[in-house]
Design a protein around this nucleic acid. Structure first.
Length: 273
DNA sequence: CCTTATGCCTGAATGC
DNA sequence: TGCATTCAGGCATAAG
């Protein structure tokens, strides 16, 4: 499921192929994939415009178009943005086809949770889902002190709090579990109970795991693909996610699965406190 | 303000 | 084997 490293990889692979490309046509197969606008309006405001810049904020992909318009895409769990150098028949779960001056861009999503919206570029950061986002975990503004201050405000457990995009932008289930394991912190620990030393460990773990995830071009546990349709490789480096019942790679103890904040959480009951 | 629960979706895995 | 149920989960929204 596309989290920060996967969206970043999509951003990079997309920019390689379609930076400066003009959107010459749009075929809306399933209008539900377009958020906030009737599909005719979406088509009208996007057709004929070049894609000039590709940015990312948390798990959101931002595509800046000519003439003051931007696309905002969110993949949720199974969304894909796929570039084809030549015209390509829509696949089973393709919902929108952007015809380009060179090739095509397909938005596909098996579970139909992902969305693309079009907004004036000047109002991008006012879109509520972007406006509420916490700091970028790989930015200079994200320091252990900032993390400490944000965790102090929350009464819930670490797992739930780290998944909250208004606390920190970009972590999903996979990278949260991996970060907590690397920081030796139990997912059930209350977020406001951490010492500064523990927060420093967590801060470092989050940055390491995200940087490694990006370097590995993301985690293709199941559905994730980049804009080339290629899998990432970080699934080979996961230490806890998806390994419930298997041995901890540090101590050999069986990894435990527990539901926290409605999400499956895997951790080592011996290494994480 | 805060936290927790529900709906959206489909395919794979599991249960009987 | 086949059918029904459960599970996977990010986020908007509703409810507590």
């Amino acid at each position: 499921m596309p989290e920060l490293p996967e969206v970043e990889t999509i951003r990079r692979t997309l920019a390689q192929h379609v930076s400066g490309s003009k959107i010459t046509s749009i075929q809306v197969i399933w209008p539900g994939a377009l958020k906030g606008w009737e599909d005719q309006e979406f088509v009208a405001s996007v057709t004929g415009k070049k894609m000039e810049r590709f940015d990312r904020r948390g798990k959101y992909l931002l595509i800046e178009l000519e003439q003051g318009w931007s696309l905002i895409a969110h993949m949720r769990m199974t969304g894909r943005l796929l570039y084809y150098p030549q015209a390509h028949e829509p696949e089973r779960h393709t919902h929108v086809v952007f015809g380009l001056d060179h090739g095509e861009l397909h938005f596909a999503d098996l579970r139909k949770f992902g969305r693309i919206q079009v907004v004036p570029t000047s109002e991008r950061w006012k879109v509520p889902s972007l406006a509420i986002l916490g700091p970028e975990p790989l930015s200079l503004e994200f320091t252990p002190e900032v993390l400490m201050e944000r965790l102090k405000r929350k009464k819930s457990n670490l797992k739930t709090v780290l998944l909250n995009q208004s606390v920190l932008a970009g972590l999903g289930n996979i990278y949260t579990d991996e970060s907590l394991f690397r920081a030796f912190l139990a997912p059930e620990r209350l977020a406001d109970s951490l010492s500064l030393a523990e927060v420093v460990l967590l801060h470092r773990a989050i940055q390491e795991v995200l940087r490694e995830g990006i370097a590995a071009q993301g985690t293709s546990f199941r559905d994730y693909r980049d804009a080339n349709g290629a899998k990432g490789t970080f699934q080979n480096s996961l230490q806890v996610y998806g390994r419930s019942g298997e041995a901890c790679l540090l101590c050999g103890m069986l990894l435990t699965k527990k539901r926290l904040g409605g999400r499956t959480t895997v951790f080592c009951p011996r290494c994480q406190h």
